[in-house]
Amino acid sequence: MDPVITAKHLSKTYGKKALAFRALKDINLTIYPGESVAIVGKSGSGKSTLMHLLALLDRPTEGQILIDGSNASQLRSRQLNRLRNRRFGFVFQQFFMNANDTVLDNVLLPLKIAGLSRFKRKAKALDALKVVDLENKAKSKANDLSGGQKQRVCIARAIVNDPEVIFADEPTGNLDSATGDKITDLLFKLNHKHGVTLIIVTHDEDLAKLCNRIIRLSDGKIISDQTVRKNLKVSASTRREKEAARVKKANRG
């Protein structure tokens, strides 16, 4: 199986000269389709920065990111925008919703950006709301929802364009544990049922343990990259292949 995102010698430096701060140092990482990856670390460890780089929201100072094997830094901004729009979905801790718009309008935003017709985007947005079990709230104002409902709407927004990868930045950070669990279930259901690759940034160990792979960051370096098998629904053989490939690659690099 070909990797979906590969990071090679990734570094990110903020500021210049004396004030320079190296947030990430020589990160090498390969993510395969269908994986659920937790990026764990204390605040300031560079986990958000890594996610932003992987999601192509920011450019690395050094190194490169390969999407489907091709260098993302060579993409034109148009292609980059298209890529993010069609293949990535985002879930944020602070939701980022337009509070005065309806739930439906919030969910169909990526489709509106993609330029889909009014009719199509409404149909797809309703489908996405069905997945998060909020279709009856389509006409409500986003502001009138509870925190958990808001995050479900954000998940609906993230999946509305049928993405291959969902990036989630502390998706349960603002929620109590019961609602947080619901959100977690939802995300992993997408991973298991639809094979969506999950990349979750979190400091919550419980959430991280649910993922089949945990990458630990400290001071901008990967200190461990463990793959756990328990949640993996991908067949064992594929899994083994993938593992072998990674070992091979690591040996080569």
């Binding site: 929201l57 148009r78 925008n81 993010r84 729009n85 980022f96 935003l109 990526p110 950006i113």
Partner: peptide
Amino acid sequence: TREIGLMKAMGLSNGK
């Protein structure tokens, strides 16, 4: 600001 950031993340171009 956030909305702009979100829309950019979702692939809306600077021009738009």
